[in-house]
Simulated assay, not measured.
Amino acid sequence: MATEETRTVQEAYPMTGGDGLYSYAKNSTQQRKAIDSAKELIKKAIAEKLDKEILLSPKTFRIADLGCSVGPNTFFAAQNILEAVESKYKSEGLNSQIPDVQVFFSDHTSNDFNQLFTSLPQDRRYYAAGVPGSFHGPLFPQNSLHFVHSSSAIQWLSRAPKEVVNKNSPAWNKGRIHCSNSGDEVVLAYKAQYDKDMQQFLQARSGEIVFGGLMVLIVPGIPNGTHHSQSLRSLTFEIFGSCLMDLARKGIISEEKVDSFNLPIYYMSPQELEAAVERNGCFSIEGLEYLPPVIPNVSGESKFNGQFLASYLRAGMEGIIKQHFGEEILDVIFDSYGKKIEENSSIFKFGKAVYFLIILKRIAEN
């Protein structure tokens, strides 16, 4: 069970629910591209890395998608995994032993599970269940899962580092909302929070996944050796922060409000994630693959649409902005961001970003 400290420290800002104009359901095509790109890699991982012994034991094969949000992306991921598992059974000559499959869709308790359940595919070949809670702590019984998937989710921290909003800390991040273009102390505070959260994430999964089971994480990150000031995604946050400061200068919000706000997001490099896995010691790294870029204009798309990017960001950030600054500024701030991102579109040529997939296998402790 989660400790009292864990329960009180974790923050929850789920993606925008429903199916409206700014909903995650309508503005997550970029994340869908990553899931589509990972399909064959996941199929190969299950074919080559999932132990045959696991196939012979369960009456129910259990899959979990962590950070599922509201769909439809999570349903595509579940279907891809299901098809790969069925293919694995058939390739091992176990056609008659394919078990029932149960898929657990998990996200924060404040996630729009109503939207998720209403949009479940009618022709699904699995039993569906929702599991509310933060993936930074335990969510499932011991040794109950055979395959865990998470896409575009583990960059979210359990909270922003406390030091960055503390006026008396050398890591105080005054006038900024992220670690892009901030001092080393701010970057180190974010890195320390990431290290702590990733350790909790891996420790929780190590208890839930059976020995020989697999976990695949699809991660938006930064290239190895890249400073956060060069990170494309962090640069877009810097522009968003400047929009907030514009509102502060106009007296619409207070500057203190901006100073006390930092995004609980850390874009890790593949090396950082590999190091976290090695420190944890409960998983072997069975593969790491780079996926095609999914952010517009990184892959050479000619048309640039700032409002598209504003809607994309709003689907993920509306909750956290509304919680801190109030609902009144939402239209103004995201409209301003869309215009300013078009004015600064050169960052999409020079900013650095990667999407990568890591395949982990649960191993017995020494």
Rank of each mutant, 00 (worst) to 15 (best):
N95L: 05
A2F: 03
D112I: 06
S37C: 13
E92A: 02
S37H: 14
V85K: 00
K39W: 08
E11A: 08
A78W: 02
I54V: 15
A77L: 11
T74N: 13
L66K: 01
A25P: 04
L56H: 08
D36P: 07
I54W: 11
A64I: 02
H108I: 00
S96A: 07
S91Q: 08
A47K: 09
Y24V: 05
G67Y: 00
K33S: 13
L120F: 10
F76Y: 15
I98H: 04
L21Y: 13
A38E: 06
D112N: 07
K44I: 06
R32D: 13
N27I: 09
S37I: 13
K39A: 15
K33Q: 14
V101Q: 00
L21F: 15
D51A: 09
D112T: 07
F113W: 02
V9M: 14
S37M: 09
Q102Y: 00
K59L: 08
P99K: 03
G93T: 01
K88P: 13
P121N: 03
Y24T: 04
F75Y: 15
S57I: 09
K49A: 10
F104T: 03
S37V: 14
S23N: 08
G93K: 00
V101H: 02
N95A: 10
A38V: 10
E83Y: 06
F76N: 13
K88W: 05
Q30D: 12
Q30C: 14
V85H: 02
A64S: 06
R62F: 03
S69G: 02
F104I: 06
V70C: 15
S96V: 03
T60Q: 09
